[in-house]
Amino acid sequence: MEKSNRVVTREVIKTMALARGIKLSDQRAEALIPELTTVVEGLEALRSMLEDSKLEPSLVFHVPGQVKHVG
């Protein structure tokens, strides 16, 4: 399985929430780390399955010979 390059930290979570207008406490942001990690890892686990499915119309752009990217 390819590893996600997504960074999930307390500061990232607080910044993302703030960009949507919600100020999260440190404690709240900390509690969301495992939740968001589960989401990210869950989707990551599907990546190769989706790439192999050759689903059309495809949301996936591949340049032949380069690293695949989904989403």
């Binding site: 929430a17 919600i22 709240r28 989707l43 989706l50 949301l59 989403g71």
Partner: peptide, 16 residues
């Protein structure tokens, strides 16, 4: 709160 953190890419990948 979790919904605030899901990106358009996440959503589209889930829809795929």
């Amino acid at each position: 709160d979790l919904g605030l953190l899901i990106t358009p890419s996440d959503y589209l990948m889930a829809q795929q």
